[in-house]
Design a binder for these strands. Structure first.
Length: 934
DNA sequence: GAGCACTGC
């Protein structure tokens, strides 16, 4: 590994950082002369070995790199000029025309498709319902003897049986006639949607409108189901009797403390006003926010200090109000923007929409947002919301944030990788841009830490709005927390007043198990308890099923949401009064020594536990049941979750920082520095990939790689596709890899179907080509949703892959690579993959298991791989994940000689010799090419 | 023969 010649940050460590402002001149992009300056320095310092060919090459490469960077800047500039001179008007009109054409086209096809899909759906629903009814009757008869039943229950059973009989007769008649009967011709809702469709609807022009609409339909049919179930509940009410429920295995909870809220139950007037909020004028609502009284103080504080830490609790209104206050105070007068970063896309979008409404401007004009795949800003934008990752990438084209007067980093306590890196970058910039104001907004616990990091910046406190939550702990530790969850849910359901329950579990499997257990118990209890609606939610769940958790709970019933961490921050469910917290979550960890990721269940932190508890106090006073003891909370939980930057592979982050001219990463000013080995590994890999030269400087190749928002290995693969004339294919594979793990949907009850469907896509050569196959087939059906359903493919992931592909295609053009397609040249495609991932290679050893070439580590092909039964001698894997074993996920077969071709500096022929060749059984370890199957 | 939390560019 080369030494870092240029150590910009060497002397600017925490203690003496104000002293050497001159150094910032050397950063590329900060001034027009910076590139030549850097060059001069290189030639001066290296004059001794300047004559050598290697050195000449290096300088040549650096020159080309900077020329490339200049071209990029020029391109960016031209883009902005076009907007200003109004050239965009023509483009806009053309785009509008295209959009109209497209929608005209769709107008013809879509209604038909919609009817068809609705018909199929209803048919399937009918079948499901009949099966459900049948099962219900069987269960009922199994569980309860005839003489144990009340009059009403007996009638209920008879009614069900009759229904089933009718349904079956109907079906028989239909089969006999061999004709399709009508399908709900008078469905009121359908008529309405069709009517709605004919209207000129602005939303229709938005991308993916069709999907959303389809999902809406799915949702509304779900409402009906709730309505039907509700009938049982009503009967109980009418008869005015209920059962006293005695659970056999109760858990004993003790209340330990109350998470104080700023509101209490008596605040009824306020609660009322919440429901009437819509009727209030926007101005009145703004005035009612807790932040409002602090407006003047806040503006003054921003004027007085360059960096301000905002300690604002949830519900204080900080995210929407602060930018507006600063706008009122004239911080945008010199045509500079106020920026505000969010960790999530939806947040950036919805907050921007809200602020645009409050300021009565059109979204995208004065107020806009910018997220990946969607830039909703214009040259008029002065308040810009964006995701932290977007700002991170904006640094590449504007390293000094010249167009901003204020930058707000919101939700800083979440400590995402991007915010963590932003801290270092903005702190750096603030030193040579005294006019730039920084606001870091964070939760209470971390405020002091941020203040320390930003040179004792003052903390500005704003109280939020939330209700108190009572915290309960178990008296003794629970052995099986899933079972404990089920018992607690029933306990709450039987003994506590109405209000929905939120349960935090670790993953899909756990949620499904819990759901089954719970359903079983509820069924056994029958009408002895009120209706309990059980809903799962995790990110891989199809969005129409996710949407169900937001439907209002029918009166008299209770909703219980079984969720992963997704409900901790990413989505908020209304009316949650009870939270059950077993105290675990799945966490990703990267081991830089082995290059292996692991995804294992770990105890949560105290901060996380409190965040979860807080979810119970959003609409009224709530209760949180922790399935661990108070002692465990005090002594066994960490204070905070380990920040992401210390847990994940930093390949892409390091490359971006290098491209920003930050050469000495070891001394970069991190709030919490990542492990040294992680940085070293990232640098080593970048060097092996050719992104850095032996001096540790960014090469032209590295500069081009940095343009892609992907891991360095994938970036290299994309660039290598130029040489192997398969850029289109590599684009597809890259896009599919970027959404990996979420393409094949495997519901527990249809695993066999799902697996057969998956196996139909298997391609010779391995999983990479299989992924390409999936995408291409989907593209051939014109990106059909129905096709995805039939093949157990996650439509959402595919749409995402399409977006990613589009973006990467644009970037290919940007880095001056032509798009060409050679789909049948599968060897070339795999060579291009190898050019990026030669680091990730394993070979079959004598014992019939794989060893990584780099670390001689024993690894296994993941059973979901198409290569699982093939066992080729040489394989390339996309990632190494430890779950129950060390698994290679997404595996393709390669030939060892390719390694010498694509990475001669990294592999020596001797390493790749197959000493084990002759001892191997005939079929095992023979590559397909050698078997003549190529 | 396993079983991938959650974001984001």
């Amino acid at each position: 590994m080369g030494k870092h010649r240029e150590s910009r940050h060497e002397e600017s460590s925490k203690h003496k950082r104000h002293k050497d402002d001159k150094k910032y001149e050397s950063r590329p992009g900060t001034s027009k002369t910076s590139y030549s300056k850097r060059h001069k320095r290189y030639s001066d310092s290296d004059s001794s070995d300047e004559q050598s060919g290697v050195e000449k090459q290096r300088l040549q490469d650096l020159r080309e790199r900077d020329e490339f960077a200049e071209r990029l800047k020029l391109k960016d500039k031209e883009k902005t000029r076009n907007i200003v001179t109004g050239f965009d008007k023509k483009a806009y009109e053309e785009a509008a025309k295209r959009l109209k054409l497209e929608s005209d086209d769709r107008n013809k096809i879509i209604p038909k498709l919609r009817i068809e899909s609705r018909r199929k759906y209803l048919e399937k629903r009918k079948d499901d319902k009949v099966a459900e009814l049948e099962a219900d009757i069987i269960d009922d008869e199994f569980l309860f003897q005839e003489d144990e039943l009340t009059e009403r229950e007996r009638k209920d059973r008879e009614h069900k049986k009759k229904l089933l009989q009718l349904a079956k007769e109907h079906e028989k008649a239909r089969e006999l006639e061999k004709v399709q009967r009508y399908h709900m011709p008078h469905d009121a809702r359908k008529g309405k949607t069709e009517e709605k469709y004919e209207e000129v609807d602005e939303r229709e022009k938005a991308p993916h409108y069709e999907q959303r609409k389809w999902e809406e339909e799915q949702m509304s049919s779900a409402v009906f189901r709730f309505g039907a179930r509700d009938a049982k509940e009503k009967r109980i009410k009418d008869e005015g009797k209920d059962y006293d429920l005695v659970l056999d295995d109760q858990i004993e909870f003790i209340q330990a403390l109350t998470l104080p809220g700023t509101k209490d139950e008596k605040d009824d007037e306020e609660k009322l006003s919440e429901t009437q909020k819509k009727r209030l004028t926007l101005e009145e609502t703004r005035r009612s926010l807790p932040i409002f009284p602090f407006k003047e103080d806040l503006i003054q504080a921003v004027k007085d200090h360059q960096v301000l830490i905002i300690d604002g609790e949830t519900g204080s209104g900080k995210t929407t109000q602060i930018p507006q206050y600063l706008y009122d105070a004239g911080f945008t007068k010199d045509k500079k923007k106020i920026g505000c970063t969010q960790p999530r896309r939806v947040a950036a979008m919805s907050v921007a929409a809200r602020v645009a409404e409050e300021m009565s401007v059109k979204l995208g004009n004065e107020v806009g947002y910018s997220i990946r795949f969607e830039d909703c800003t214009s040259e008029r934008t002065i308040i810009k919301y964006m995701t932290d990752g977007t700002l991170h990438r904006e640094f590449l084209s504007e390293p000094d944030l010249q167009s901003y007067s204020v930058m707000i980093i919101d939700e800083a306590h979440e400590r995402t990788l991007h915010t963590d890196i932003l801290f270092g970058l903005v702190k750096d910039i603030a030193r040579f841009r005294p006019d730039l104001k920084l606001l870091i907004s964070s939760a209470t616990l971390d405020a002091q830490k941020f203040s320390d990091f930003f040179d004792e910046a003052p903390i500005f406190r704003i109280r939020g709005r939330c209700f108190p939550v009572d915290i309960y702990y178990t008296k003794a530790p629970e052995a099986d927390y899933i079972d404990a969850c089920v018992v607690s849910i029933l306990q709450i359901h039987a003994t506590q007043s109405l209000g929905d329950i939120l349960v935090f579990l670790t993953g899909q499997e756990e949620i499904e198990t819990c759901q089954e257990l719970l359903q079983e118990r509820v069924r056994r209890l029958g009408s002895k308890i009120k209706e309990l609606i059980i809903l799962p939610v995790y990110s891989n769940l199809p969005s129409d099923m996710q949407a169900k958790i937001f439907l209002p709970t029918p009166p008299g019933a209770r909703k219980v949401v079984l969720a992963t961490n997704i409900a901790e921050t990413s989505l908020t469910i209304d009316n949650i009064i009870y939270v059950i917290d077993p105290g675990f979550c799945k966490q990703n960890n990267f081991n830089s020594r082995t290059g292996m990721e692991s995804l294992i269940v770990v105890p949560i932190s105290k901060a996380s536990a409190n965040q979860r508890a807080g979810r119970a106090g959003r609409v009224a006073a709530g209760k949180c049941f922790r399935l661990y003891t108070a002692w465990a909370y005090q002594h066994e939980l960490e204070e905070n979750t380990i920040p992401e930057i210390q847990r994940i592979n930093l390949g892409n982050a390091v490359l971006t920082l290098k491209a920003l001219g930050i050469n000495d990463l070891v001394h970069f000013d991190f709030l919490d520095p990542p492990p040294h080995e992680t940085l070293v590994l990232a640098l080593e890999q970048l060097y092996a990939l050719g992104a850095l030269n032996h001096h540790g400087e960014l090469t032209k190749l590295g500069r081009r790689m940095a343009e892609f928002p992907v891991d360095p290995m994938m970036g290299k693969m994309l660039l290598a596709s130029e040489k192997y004339k398969c850029s289109e294919e590599i684009l597809t594979i890259s896009a599919m890899l970027s959404v990996n793990g979420a393409i094949f949907y495997r519901p527990k009850d249809k695993i066999i179907h799902a697996d057969t469907a998956r196996k139909n896509f298997f391609a010779v050569g391995g999983d990479h080509l299989t992924l390409m196959n999936v995408y291409n087939q989907w593209a051939e059906t014109d990106f059909s949703t129905q096709w995805c359903y039939e093949n157990f493919i996650q439509h959402r992931s595919m749409k995402r892959a399409r977006d990613v592909r589009e973006q990467l295609a644009g970037l290919m053009e940007r880095v001056e690579i032509e798009l060409v397609s050679n789909p049948t040249e599968t060897a070339n495609i795999r060579k291009a993959i190898t050019a990026g991932y030669f680091y990730h290679v394993a070979r079959l050893s004598k014992g019939g298991h794989y060893k990584t070439v780099k670390h001689q580590q024993t690894v296994t092909i993941h059973p979901n791989s198409s290569m699982f039964e093939d066992l080729p001698r040489w394989v390339l894997y996309h990632e190494l994940v430890f779950t129950t074993k060390e698994f290679m996920r997404t595996v393709s077969e390669i030939e060892s000689k390719w390694l010498l071709e694509v990475a001669p500096h990294y592999y020596k022929p001797r390493e790749l010799e197959d000493s084990t060749n002759k001892k191997m059984p005939k079929q095992v370890g023979k590559s397909r090419a050698e078997l003549g199957d190529h």
